[in-house]
Nucleic acid binder design. Structure first.
Length: 259
DNA sequence: ATGTCGACGAATCGTCGA
């Protein structure tokens, strides 16, 4: 079984690339972020023609998340229960799998702009709320996957310039502490369960030839709960779509596991 | 500050967010 995550930076622009990628990579479930479209504009039909069901939670212009899956998605939750949020950043759903249902959580984590800013404070509150809710969610659904654009480079090796960017957004101790708190819930970063090439990144700035120079960050992650960890067989970043014409600034991450 | 995208409103670009 395969689960993937991809920040597409506008599904309106990237839909053809997503459909082409799914045809070449027929994963069982795909988490999308930064749809930048309202739910009434979500292309359910196009995905259905490709053999996929979809559930979405979006808004005009910003944010927006969705799960695309080969099998029906049930028990859908939008945003973090109990956390009042004006933005569309979380969608959770349950997917049938051979070894039992999987709980799939997809998050477009707050960027935070700059340490000390209002947006950074919102990021900290949001991460707190996510942590609290996920603790309950894992207790209810031990077979859980947390995928998405975390907007956190968890360790120095996840950044092209850890010294130069130390303490800046996506690199702060506070953000990294939040990432480790998520791991402390019993979640594992599937990418780091395996030996990986050095300088493996999932995002590259559009500017300054970021991709060509591999000046990137690894901020897109797929975490698995304790119950799933032993079954994980691989996790890889697919850089190919970043070479497309009009690419997203993010590349998809794909996890393979026995479910 | 800059670079580059994408979306928006009201331009035929300026502004915002990433």
């Amino acid at each position: 079984m395969q689960i993937a995550t991809w920040n597409v930076n506008s599904l309106t622009v990237r839909l053809p690339q997503v459909l082409a990628w799914l045809e070449a990579n027929p994963v069982d479930a795909l988490a999308l972020q930064e749809l930048k479209l309202s739910d009434d504009k979500f292309p359910h039909d196009a995905f259905e023609l490709a053999g996929y069901q979809s559930v979405c939670f979006g808004e005009k212009t910003y944010n927006g998340v969705a799960w695309i899956a080969r099998a029906p998605l049930g028990d859908v939750v939008r945003n973090i229960p109990g956390f009042d949020d004006q933005q569309t950043r979380v969608i959770a759903a349950t997917l049938d799998a051979p070894g039992g249902a999987l709980r799939l959580v997809n998050g477009y984590f707050v960027n935070g702009q700059e340490p000390g800013s209002d947006k950074f404070a919102y990021k900290m509150r949001w991460l707190d709320a996510l942590h609290g809710w996920l603790g309950e969610e894992i207790a209810r659904h031990p077979r859980l996957v947390l995928a998405g654009d975390f907007n956190i480079a968890p360790e120095d090796r996840d950044s092209y310039d850890p010294a130069g960017l130390a303490g800046t957004i996506l690199h702060t101790d506070e953000e990294r502490a939040h990432f480790r708190r998520l791991l402390a819930l019993g979640l594992s970063d599937s990418f780091r369960l395996f030996e990986q090439p050095e300088k493996s990144f999932s995002w590259w700035d559009y500017r300054m030839l970021g991709f060509q120079k591999n000046r990137g960050l690894r901020i897109d992650h797929i975490l698995v709960s304790e119950a799933l960890k032993a079954g994980v067989r691989a996790c890889a970043i697919d850089r190919a779509p970043r070479k497309n014409k009009q690419p997203s600034d993010h590349a998809p991450v794909v996890m393979t596991f026995d479910a």
